[in-house]
Simulated assay, not measured.
Amino acid sequence: MHTTVSTQRSFSLAQTQQYALPVLFALFGLIMGSWAGRIPALAECVQVSHSALSMVLLCGGLGAVLSCPLSSFLMGRIGARKSMLVSGMALLGVLVSIGLAPTVQRLMVSVLMLGITASIFNVAMNSAATRREKQTGKSELSMLHGLCCAGGLAGATLGSLMATMKIAPATHFLMLAGPLAVVLWGAFSMMDADDDVEQIKKEPFSLPRGSLALLGALGFLGSMAEGSIADWSGVFLKEHFGASDGLAPLALSCFSVMMLLSRMVGDKLKVRFGAQRLVTFGAMISASGLLFAVVSPSAHVALAGFAAAGLGLALLFPFVFSAAGAQGPAALAAVAGMAYSGSLMGPPAIGAVAHFVGMQAAIAYLGGLSLVIALVASRTRLLK
Protein backbone atom coordinates (compact mmCIF):
# COMPACT_ATOMS: atom_id res chain seq x y z
CA MET A 1 0.00 0.00 0.00
CA HIS A 2 2.82 2.39 0.95
CA THR A 3 4.55 1.69 -2.38
CA THR A 4 1.35 2.39 -4.30
CA VAL A 5 0.82 5.74 -2.53
CA SER A 6 4.47 6.73 -3.17
CA THR A 7 4.14 5.82 -6.85
CA GLN A 8 0.94 7.86 -7.16
CA ARG A 9 2.60 10.87 -5.51
CA SER A 10 5.63 10.59 -7.82
CA PHE A 11 3.36 10.38 -10.86
CA SER A 12 1.33 13.38 -9.64
CA LEU A 13 4.55 15.37 -9.08
CA ALA A 14 5.84 14.51 -12.56
CA GLN A 15 2.52 15.61 -14.05
CA THR A 16 2.71 18.91 -12.15
CA GLN A 17 6.34 19.54 -13.14
CA GLN A 18 5.57 19.32 -16.84
CA TYR A 19 3.45 22.49 -16.60
CA ALA A 20 6.10 24.62 -14.86
CA LEU A 21 8.21 25.53 -17.90
CA PRO A 22 5.25 26.29 -20.22
CA VAL A 23 3.92 28.65 -17.53
CA LEU A 24 7.32 30.34 -17.15
CA PHE A 25 7.80 30.83 -20.90
CA ALA A 26 4.29 32.29 -21.27
CA LEU A 27 4.86 34.50 -18.21
CA PHE A 28 8.11 35.86 -19.67
CA GLY A 29 6.36 36.68 -22.95
CA LEU A 30 3.54 38.42 -21.06
CA ILE A 31 6.00 40.61 -19.14
CA MET A 32 7.99 41.61 -22.22
CA GLY A 33 4.85 42.15 -24.31
CA SER A 34 3.37 44.36 -21.59
CA TRP A 35 6.52 46.48 -21.54
CA ALA A 36 6.64 46.78 -25.34
CA GLY A 37 2.94 47.66 -25.53
CA ARG A 38 3.38 50.65 -23.19
CA ILE A 39 6.53 52.15 -24.77
CA PRO A 40 4.56 54.99 -26.48
CA ALA A 41 2.84 55.90 -23.20
CA LEU A 42 6.13 55.76 -21.28
CA ALA A 43 7.77 58.04 -23.84
CA GLU A 44 4.91 60.50 -23.43
CA CYS A 45 5.13 60.38 -19.62
CA VAL A 46 8.77 61.53 -19.57
CA GLN A 47 8.36 63.65 -22.74
CA VAL A 48 11.20 61.91 -24.57
CA SER A 49 12.11 62.71 -28.18
CA HIS A 50 12.38 60.02 -30.88
CA SER A 51 16.17 60.16 -30.82
CA ALA A 52 16.27 59.91 -27.03
CA LEU A 53 13.78 57.05 -27.11
CA SER A 54 16.20 55.16 -29.40
CA MET A 55 18.87 55.60 -26.74
CA VAL A 56 16.48 54.33 -24.05
CA LEU A 57 15.72 51.20 -26.08
CA LEU A 58 19.43 50.74 -26.79
CA CYS A 59 19.98 50.49 -23.03
CA GLY A 60 17.84 47.35 -23.00
CA GLY A 61 20.02 45.68 -25.62
CA LEU A 62 23.17 46.78 -23.83
CA GLY A 63 21.86 45.29 -20.59
CA ALA A 64 21.18 42.02 -22.39
CA VAL A 65 24.78 41.81 -23.60
CA LEU A 66 26.19 42.73 -20.17
CA SER A 67 24.06 40.05 -18.51
CA CYS A 68 25.69 37.06 -20.21
CA PRO A 69 28.69 36.61 -17.85
CA LEU A 70 26.34 37.21 -14.89
CA SER A 71 23.84 34.59 -16.06
CA SER A 72 26.65 32.06 -16.52
CA PHE A 73 27.95 32.87 -13.02
CA LEU A 74 24.50 32.57 -11.40
CA MET A 75 23.66 29.24 -13.01
CA GLY A 76 27.09 27.94 -12.03
CA ARG A 77 26.44 28.88 -8.38
CA ILE A 78 22.71 28.30 -7.76
CA GLY A 79 21.42 26.46 -10.87
CA ALA A 80 18.86 27.42 -13.50
CA ARG A 81 15.79 26.92 -11.29
CA LYS A 82 16.86 29.38 -8.58
CA SER A 83 18.30 31.74 -11.20
CA MET A 84 14.83 31.94 -12.76
CA LEU A 85 13.25 32.79 -9.42
CA VAL A 86 15.80 35.47 -8.52
CA SER A 87 15.90 37.09 -11.97
CA GLY A 88 12.12 36.76 -12.44
CA MET A 89 11.29 38.55 -9.19
CA ALA A 90 13.90 41.20 -10.02
CA LEU A 91 12.38 41.56 -13.51
CA LEU A 92 8.93 42.26 -12.04
CA GLY A 93 10.46 44.85 -9.71
CA VAL A 94 12.25 46.50 -12.63
CA LEU A 95 8.99 46.56 -14.62
CA VAL A 96 7.36 48.56 -11.83
CA SER A 97 10.37 50.91 -11.65
CA ILE A 98 10.03 51.56 -15.40
CA GLY A 99 6.42 52.64 -14.92
CA LEU A 100 7.41 54.93 -12.02
CA ALA A 101 10.47 56.48 -13.72
CA PRO A 102 10.05 60.29 -13.53
CA THR A 103 12.85 61.29 -15.92
CA VAL A 104 14.57 60.06 -19.07
CA GLN A 105 17.73 59.27 -17.11
CA ARG A 106 15.84 57.11 -14.60
CA LEU A 107 14.03 55.40 -17.45
CA MET A 108 17.34 54.58 -19.14
CA VAL A 109 18.71 53.01 -15.95
CA SER A 110 15.50 50.99 -15.47
CA VAL A 111 15.53 49.75 -19.07
CA LEU A 112 19.19 48.78 -18.69
CA MET A 113 18.19 46.70 -15.67
CA LEU A 114 15.29 45.28 -17.68
CA GLY A 115 17.77 44.03 -20.28
CA ILE A 116 19.94 42.41 -17.59
CA THR A 117 17.18 40.70 -15.60
CA ALA A 118 15.14 39.62 -18.64
CA SER A 119 18.18 38.07 -20.29
CA ILE A 120 19.23 36.14 -17.19
CA PHE A 121 15.67 34.81 -16.87
CA ASN A 122 15.62 33.93 -20.58
CA VAL A 123 18.92 32.05 -20.50
CA ALA A 124 17.98 30.22 -17.27
CA MET A 125 14.60 29.00 -18.53
CA ASN A 126 16.12 27.89 -21.86
CA SER A 127 18.84 26.05 -19.95
CA ALA A 128 16.21 24.27 -17.84
CA ALA A 129 14.25 23.43 -20.99
CA THR A 130 17.24 21.98 -22.83
CA ARG A 131 18.07 19.87 -19.77
CA ARG A 132 14.55 18.45 -19.83
CA GLU A 133 14.93 17.73 -23.55
CA LYS A 134 18.04 15.69 -22.77
CA GLN A 135 16.28 13.86 -19.94
CA THR A 136 13.17 12.95 -21.92
CA GLY A 137 14.67 12.69 -25.41
CA LYS A 138 11.72 14.76 -26.61
CA SER A 139 12.01 18.05 -28.51
CA GLU A 140 9.83 20.75 -26.96
CA LEU A 141 11.75 24.03 -27.10
CA SER A 142 9.90 25.21 -30.21
CA MET A 143 6.53 24.79 -28.47
CA LEU A 144 7.85 26.63 -25.41
CA HIS A 145 9.08 29.52 -27.55
CA GLY A 146 5.65 29.52 -29.20
CA LEU A 147 4.04 29.95 -25.78
CA CYS A 148 6.43 32.83 -25.17
CA CYS A 149 5.21 34.42 -28.43
CA ALA A 150 1.61 33.90 -27.34
CA GLY A 151 2.38 35.55 -24.00
CA GLY A 152 3.99 38.47 -25.82
CA LEU A 153 0.94 38.98 -28.01
CA ALA A 154 -1.31 38.80 -24.93
CA GLY A 155 0.88 41.33 -23.12
CA ALA A 156 0.87 43.75 -26.05
CA THR A 157 -2.93 43.40 -26.36
CA LEU A 158 -3.33 44.03 -22.64
CA GLY A 159 -1.11 47.10 -22.96
CA SER A 160 -3.27 48.40 -25.78
CA LEU A 161 -6.40 47.83 -23.67
CA MET A 162 -4.87 49.63 -20.69
CA ALA A 163 -3.88 52.55 -22.92
CA THR A 164 -7.42 52.73 -24.31
CA MET A 165 -8.76 52.84 -20.73
CA LYS A 166 -6.29 55.68 -19.95
CA ILE A 167 -4.58 53.62 -17.22
CA ALA A 168 -1.06 54.91 -16.57
CA PRO A 169 1.88 52.52 -17.14
CA ALA A 170 2.82 52.71 -13.45
CA THR A 171 -0.64 51.55 -12.38
CA HIS A 172 -0.73 48.90 -15.11
CA PHE A 173 2.64 47.42 -14.10
CA LEU A 174 1.78 47.49 -10.39
CA MET A 175 -1.49 45.63 -11.12
CA LEU A 176 0.50 43.06 -13.12
CA ALA A 177 3.49 42.53 -10.83
CA GLY A 178 1.67 41.08 -7.79
CA PRO A 179 -0.29 38.29 -9.52
CA LEU A 180 2.66 37.39 -11.78
CA ALA A 181 4.97 37.12 -8.75
CA VAL A 182 2.55 34.55 -7.30
CA VAL A 183 2.49 32.64 -10.61
CA LEU A 184 6.30 32.73 -10.78
CA TRP A 185 6.62 31.36 -7.25
CA GLY A 186 4.07 28.64 -8.02
CA ALA A 187 5.93 27.55 -11.18
CA PHE A 188 9.25 27.60 -9.29
CA SER A 189 7.74 25.39 -6.56
CA MET A 190 6.50 22.91 -9.17
CA MET A 191 9.98 22.35 -10.59
CA ASP A 192 12.24 19.57 -9.33
CA ALA A 193 14.72 20.94 -6.76
CA ASP A 194 17.28 18.37 -7.98
CA ASP A 195 17.55 20.40 -11.21
CA ASP A 196 19.64 23.02 -9.41
CA VAL A 197 22.06 20.48 -7.95
CA GLU A 198 22.64 18.79 -11.32
CA GLN A 199 23.05 22.06 -13.23
CA ILE A 200 25.59 23.68 -10.92
CA LYS A 201 28.86 23.63 -12.84
CA LYS A 202 31.35 26.40 -12.22
CA GLU A 203 32.36 27.03 -15.82
CA PRO A 204 33.97 30.40 -16.69
CA PHE A 205 32.15 32.51 -19.24
CA SER A 206 33.84 32.72 -22.64
CA LEU A 207 32.90 33.60 -26.19
CA PRO A 208 31.80 30.65 -28.35
CA ARG A 209 34.52 28.88 -30.32
CA GLY A 210 34.67 26.29 -33.07
CA SER A 211 31.34 24.68 -33.91
CA LEU A 212 29.69 26.66 -31.11
CA ALA A 213 30.74 29.89 -32.84
CA LEU A 214 28.52 28.98 -35.80
CA LEU A 215 25.56 28.68 -33.43
CA GLY A 216 26.49 32.09 -32.05
CA ALA A 217 26.67 33.48 -35.59
CA LEU A 218 23.19 32.11 -36.31
CA GLY A 219 21.86 33.74 -33.13
CA PHE A 220 23.56 37.02 -34.07
CA LEU A 221 22.17 37.06 -37.62
CA GLY A 222 18.73 35.84 -36.52
CA SER A 223 18.34 38.54 -33.89
CA MET A 224 19.51 41.17 -36.39
CA ALA A 225 16.79 40.05 -38.80
CA GLU A 226 14.01 39.70 -36.20
CA GLY A 227 14.78 42.99 -34.47
CA SER A 228 15.01 44.88 -37.75
CA ILE A 229 11.70 43.49 -39.03
CA ALA A 230 10.04 44.40 -35.72
CA ASP A 231 11.33 47.97 -35.85
CA TRP A 232 11.21 48.74 -39.58
CA SER A 233 8.48 46.69 -41.29
CA GLY A 234 5.74 49.18 -40.39
CA VAL A 235 7.94 52.10 -41.42
CA PHE A 236 8.53 50.41 -44.78
CA LEU A 237 4.80 50.04 -45.45
CA LYS A 238 4.16 53.62 -44.43
CA GLU A 239 7.00 55.24 -46.41
CA HIS A 240 7.01 53.04 -49.51
CA PHE A 241 3.28 52.43 -49.96
CA GLY A 242 1.80 55.30 -47.96
CA ALA A 243 0.02 52.82 -45.66
CA SER A 244 -2.28 54.21 -42.98
CA ASP A 245 -1.46 54.20 -39.27
CA GLY A 246 -3.89 51.32 -38.87
CA LEU A 247 -2.42 49.20 -41.68
CA ALA A 248 1.32 49.72 -41.07
CA PRO A 249 1.52 47.76 -37.75
CA LEU A 250 -0.08 44.73 -39.44
CA ALA A 251 3.30 43.85 -40.97
CA LEU A 252 4.64 43.00 -37.52
CA SER A 253 1.35 41.31 -36.57
CA CYS A 254 1.53 39.01 -39.63
CA PHE A 255 5.18 38.26 -38.89
CA SER A 256 4.47 37.46 -35.22
CA VAL A 257 1.36 35.34 -35.78
CA MET A 258 3.07 33.15 -38.40
CA MET A 259 6.07 32.81 -36.10
CA LEU A 260 3.75 31.64 -33.31
CA LEU A 261 1.98 29.09 -35.53
CA SER A 262 5.25 27.73 -36.88
CA ARG A 263 6.74 27.28 -33.42
CA MET A 264 3.73 25.34 -32.17
CA VAL A 265 4.43 22.58 -34.72
CA GLY A 266 8.22 22.98 -34.87
CA ASP A 267 9.06 20.14 -32.50
CA LYS A 268 7.15 17.59 -34.59
CA LEU A 269 8.83 18.88 -37.76
CA LYS A 270 12.23 18.61 -36.08
CA VAL A 271 11.70 14.89 -35.40
CA ARG A 272 10.84 14.31 -39.04
CA PHE A 273 13.22 16.61 -40.91
CA GLY A 274 15.96 17.64 -38.46
CA ALA A 275 16.82 21.09 -37.09
CA GLN A 276 19.54 21.93 -39.63
CA ARG A 277 17.31 21.34 -42.63
CA LEU A 278 14.40 23.28 -41.11
CA VAL A 279 16.49 26.33 -40.19
CA THR A 280 18.21 26.35 -43.59
CA PHE A 281 15.00 25.96 -45.58
CA GLY A 282 13.16 28.39 -43.30
CA ALA A 283 15.77 31.09 -43.88
CA MET A 284 15.32 30.66 -47.63
CA ILE A 285 11.55 31.09 -47.20
CA SER A 286 12.25 34.25 -45.19
CA ALA A 287 14.52 35.62 -47.93
CA SER A 288 11.85 34.92 -50.56
CA GLY A 289 9.17 36.58 -48.44
CA LEU A 290 11.16 39.73 -47.78
CA LEU A 291 12.18 40.11 -51.42
CA PHE A 292 8.53 39.55 -52.37
CA ALA A 293 7.56 42.39 -50.00
CA VAL A 294 10.07 44.69 -51.74
CA VAL A 295 8.59 44.11 -55.23
CA SER A 296 4.93 43.92 -54.12
CA PRO A 297 2.50 46.28 -55.86
CA SER A 298 0.69 47.27 -52.64
CA ALA A 299 0.98 47.24 -48.87
CA HIS A 300 -1.73 44.57 -48.54
CA VAL A 301 0.19 42.19 -50.82
CA ALA A 302 3.45 42.96 -49.01
CA LEU A 303 1.92 41.67 -45.77
CA ALA A 304 2.17 38.14 -47.22
CA GLY A 305 5.92 38.63 -47.56
CA PHE A 306 6.33 39.54 -43.88
CA ALA A 307 4.13 36.59 -42.92
CA ALA A 308 6.47 34.30 -44.89
CA ALA A 309 9.46 35.85 -43.09
CA GLY A 310 7.87 35.03 -39.73
CA LEU A 311 7.20 31.48 -40.86
CA GLY A 312 10.78 31.05 -42.07
CA LEU A 313 12.65 32.55 -39.11
CA ALA A 314 10.44 31.08 -36.37
CA LEU A 315 12.44 27.94 -35.68
CA LEU A 316 15.90 29.49 -35.67
CA PHE A 317 16.05 30.53 -32.02
CA PRO A 318 14.38 27.46 -30.48
CA PHE A 319 16.74 25.10 -32.32
CA VAL A 320 19.87 27.22 -31.85
CA PHE A 321 19.20 27.54 -28.11
CA SER A 322 18.41 23.82 -27.89
CA ALA A 323 21.70 22.92 -29.58
CA ALA A 324 23.69 25.37 -27.44
CA GLY A 325 21.98 24.28 -24.21
CA ALA A 326 22.90 20.67 -24.97
CA GLN A 327 26.56 21.77 -24.60
CA GLY A 328 25.91 23.21 -21.11
CA PRO A 329 24.69 26.44 -19.43
CA ALA A 330 27.94 28.33 -20.13
CA ALA A 331 27.68 27.51 -23.85
CA LEU A 332 24.07 28.71 -23.89
CA ALA A 333 25.02 31.97 -22.17
CA ALA A 334 27.83 32.55 -24.69
CA VAL A 335 25.57 31.95 -27.71
CA ALA A 336 22.89 34.15 -26.13
CA GLY A 337 25.49 36.91 -25.75
CA MET A 338 26.21 36.86 -29.48
CA ALA A 339 22.49 36.83 -30.23
CA TYR A 340 21.79 39.83 -28.03
CA SER A 341 24.63 41.79 -29.64
CA GLY A 342 22.90 41.19 -32.97
CA SER A 343 19.72 42.76 -31.61
CA LEU A 344 21.82 45.82 -30.72
CA MET A 345 23.38 46.20 -34.15
CA GLY A 346 20.53 45.17 -36.46
CA PRO A 347 17.97 48.00 -36.24
CA PRO A 348 20.57 50.83 -36.39
CA ALA A 349 22.26 49.15 -39.38
CA ILE A 350 18.95 48.92 -41.24
CA GLY A 351 18.25 52.54 -40.34
CA ALA A 352 21.57 53.57 -41.90
CA VAL A 353 20.83 51.61 -45.09
CA ALA A 354 17.37 53.18 -45.27
CA HIS A 355 18.84 56.66 -44.79
CA PHE A 356 21.37 56.37 -47.61
CA VAL A 357 19.62 54.16 -50.20
CA GLY A 358 15.97 53.96 -49.14
CA MET A 359 13.59 51.61 -47.33
CA GLN A 360 13.23 49.21 -50.26
CA ALA A 361 16.96 48.55 -50.21
CA ALA A 362 16.86 48.13 -46.42
CA ILE A 363 14.21 45.39 -46.59
CA ALA A 364 16.05 43.78 -49.52
CA TYR A 365 19.16 43.80 -47.32
CA LEU A 366 17.20 41.78 -44.74
CA GLY A 367 16.35 39.31 -47.49
CA GLY A 368 20.06 38.98 -48.22
CA LEU A 369 20.72 38.52 -44.51
CA SER A 370 18.27 35.60 -44.51
CA LEU A 371 20.26 33.97 -47.32
CA VAL A 372 23.41 34.29 -45.21
CA ILE A 373 21.53 32.61 -42.34
CA ALA A 374 20.66 29.73 -44.68
CA LEU A 375 24.32 29.37 -45.69
CA VAL A 376 25.59 29.39 -42.08
CA ALA A 377 22.86 26.96 -40.95
CA SER A 378 23.77 24.50 -43.70
CA ARG A 379 27.32 24.35 -42.25
CA THR A 380 26.35 24.20 -38.55
CA ARG A 381 26.77 20.55 -37.54
CA LEU A 382 25.58 21.06 -33.97
CA LEU A 383 22.07 21.65 -35.31
CA LYS A 384 20.50 18.20 -35.21
Rank of each mutant, 00 (worst) to 15 (best):
A334H: 09
T280R: 09
R379N: 10
F173Q: 02
M75G: 10
V271G: 01
P22V: 15
A309C: 03
F273V: 05
S298T: 08
G152L: 02
G37E: 05
L95R: 07
A170T: 13
A124R: 04
D245S: 13
R277K: 11
V279Q: 04
A170N: 08
A129Q: 04
A308M: 14
A283G: 11
G29I: 12
A170V: 13
A339M: 15
G151T: 01
G152M: 03
A324W: 03
M162D: 05
K134Q: 15
M284T: 06
A101G: 15
G178W: 14
A354H: 06
R277Q: 04
L214N: 01
K82V: 09
L252K: 09
G79P: 10
T280M: 08
C68G: 04
D231C: 01
M84L: 15
C68L: 13
G88K: 13
F319S: 12
V257K: 13
V111Q: 00
Y19T: 11
C148H: 13
G33H: 06
V279D: 11
Q8V: 09
I31V: 15
A352M: 15
V301P: 03
L369V: 11
M75T: 11
P169C: 11
L247P: 07
A41V: 05
L290Y: 08
V123S: 04
G155R: 02
E203V: 15
E140W: 00
G242A: 04
A154S: 14
Q105M: 08
G178M: 15
S343T: 15
A225K: 09
A293M: 00
F28W: 05
V182K: 02
A14V: 00
G137A: 03
I229S: 07
A163K: 10
